[in-house]
Design a protein around this nucleic acid. Sequence first.
DNA 1: GTAAATTAGTATGCCAATCAAACAAATCAC
DNA 2: GTGATTTGTTTGATTGGCATACTAATTTAC
Lengths: 401, 401
Amino acid sequence: MLVSTDLRPNETRALAALFRAGALSRAALARDLGLTRSTTGALVLGLTEAGLARERSDGADDEQDGEGRVGRPGILVEIEGNGGFFLGAYIGVNWIATVAVDLAGAQRASASRAFAGPGSTPEAAVAIIEELVAEIRSQLPEGTRPYGLNVAVPGFPAADGVSYHATILGWHGVNLAELLGNAFGDDFPILLENDANAVAVAETYRAQPGKDDEDALVILIENGVGGGIINAGRLHRGRLGGAGEIGHLRIGDEGFVFDAKRPGRLESYVGKDALLARYLHISGRRAGVDEFVAALAAGDPTAVATARDWALWFGRGLATLACTLQPERIILSGSVNAVYPFVAEQVEAFLSDFLAEGYPVPTVELSRVGADGPALGAACLLHQASLSGDPKFQLRGLAAR
Amino acid sequence: MLVSTDLRPNETRALAALFRAGALSRAALARDLGLTRSTTGALVLGLTEAGLARERSDGADDEQDGEGRVGRPGILVEIEGNGGFFLGAYIGVNWIATVAVDLAGAQRASASRAFAGPGSTPEAAVAIIEELVAEIRSQLPEGTRPYGLNVAVPGFPAADGVSYHATILGWHGVNLAELLGNAFGDDFPILLENDANAVAVAETYRAQPGKDDEDALVILIENGVGGGIINAGRLHRGRLGGAGEIGHLRIGDEGFVFDAKRPGRLESYVGKDALLARYLHISGRRAGVDEFVAALAAGDPTAVATARDWALWFGRGLATLACTLQPERIILSGSVNAVYPFVAEQVEAFLSDFLAEGYPVPTVELSRVGADGPALGAACLLHQASLSGDPKFQLRGLAAR
DNA sequence: GTAAATTAGTATGCCAATCAAACAAATCAC
DNA sequence: GTGATTTGTTTGATTGGCATACTAATTTAC
């Protein structure tokens, strides 16, 4: 009879090692885990029987630099994606999205729906998530049960750590965990995560095979400026998940848009509103981002001047953050990304000028993940928790008993 | 025959659990580790025989809220401090210090010596460390071999990750790891750590029993302003250990002391030089920190005005950092601490004003560890690595074979 | 005061995870 | 080809951990 069984510690460790490396021979895995080849052979046998790993058939052993090495070549073992699924969701201002990530870390299903965030109730959002989760679950192989659902929200828990504030949605003191718990019962564990944090994970989680200790800063620029911090491959949350709220970074005295209570903040210089307000101020033209970018591309001097001002403050902010956090990469996301290519040189020159000699200059890159970012990152966080051996997200496999 | 043997994974996990909790009964330890009581009993027997744990005799079971609980009371087991030692050193501008921390996390030995940092060679510093290490080793029980030496340095590795820059000592491109390796051979592993990072660890490592997931920001204020970031109880290093270099945070346009290349930085407003320069500007008096504090205590209006200006910019900087990192505690260290009590209210009012509603306000505290901070923190980092199961710092015990 | 309930610690037998050692298989170097 | 090297598997032995008892020490109920 086939039953679902919890994985033993070394099985989880083996999967984590396979995930890190992409694929490994049994012998290489044994070295990685500090076990003997015989033990590892048995381990891999157990994992394949449980449907969590498989021998790689395709393309032979191309990725491993096996060519030129003496001795019998190994058979690469990799994670079987269908071994498990992790759900992520995003409650945005305009839409709600859900995705499923498989055990191999690949996105396997997604579904989304328009949602008029401000003005809608949390209950309405949860109802939509419930429907979308049913939809993506139907896209997954028969009989699979996800390991959890992580919901990215544009807000933060209050000081009590439970009730959520999502100002941008007009929600205050909402117990989202309870609402979601009511909807999904005890099917699987449910988590909540700030959306900017989730995007940061989506942008960096396993961005390069074999590299899982990245230091990165992901910056989201819309009207507000938010961000997420990745330290050694792990999300830096801070006390309530609010670390990375760099919009309030005070870099000057006023700002392009003035805020009496908190003047001089980063977002009042580099946010979307701020950029367009500056353009209005210089050119007298009221434009959207697309129009502004078109003017910039056409060489309109007022647009160029606006972009230069913007780049100056943006560079200031990045330099400050680079000193404080010393990331390897800074990744930009949001609609203002369309402007960045026009000022990349200026910003990066400012950045490296500002940093002390010998200080590593981070690269500045544009987002790779698209609109699915928050939901994808939320799912990746579950994937990470499962492979790190967190007992709450303990992996399971099918075993003959 | 007694031989030294590596600990098995569960033995290390048990020690880590004992360290977190201070002391646990075998039954409580079993629950913590997810093992049965019988297994845990055997585990504890092994640890006590290996000289790494012991039953607590003193003061009975006071700390555990054992009173009023039904059932047979447990016998508390705690770490035997003599089970192992971790060495930390600090190369300062004026002195070199070394300390030893035992397996229970207690400081057990220290020795220091004056050192004219700028002008001295790295070789001279290493020679002094060698002597001081011999000195503190002689203070430890016979025959103990430390698990490692971690040296806190006022500098950072270059982009190559190896050669060190310590501008304040006048050292550039020094391969400290090699020099230390030559001095100590393969006696034990040797690490290097930035001094501000080490202080951050010293201030937070096991500050409260049972709490090991603190989010804190430690700020060092001398002429320069540096710092270290603790995220969930772990040091946030950034790419080369330079995270927390908040002195370059740009919070204004100029500064109390002007720096043409990087104007408006935090340290040009709140560093010791900046504070005293401001005082000179307002009062016309050239003073040291002690004199300034005396004037402040005496109610000298120019000193009060200076402190108010200082508090304003300091509050700005703290608010910015609190948003970015969301720490639970901000801990201040350095000679300027003497000024802080006079402006604590202003700074903290500014801080909570600036933070958004619902945002947790960090507490601001003054340093608890003294001059030994950097060396102590360096040693604590080794302690942490050992108990976290890092194979490089694998704990060992004596066992009959 | 005594009995019942509860929890801690230990002893015993069993299972299974791991190892060490040996062997067969597949490749490279010559 | 032959030898060297590395992989994967088999075998038997070891041991780490569990379930299940059992005894010990304390609180609660009566």
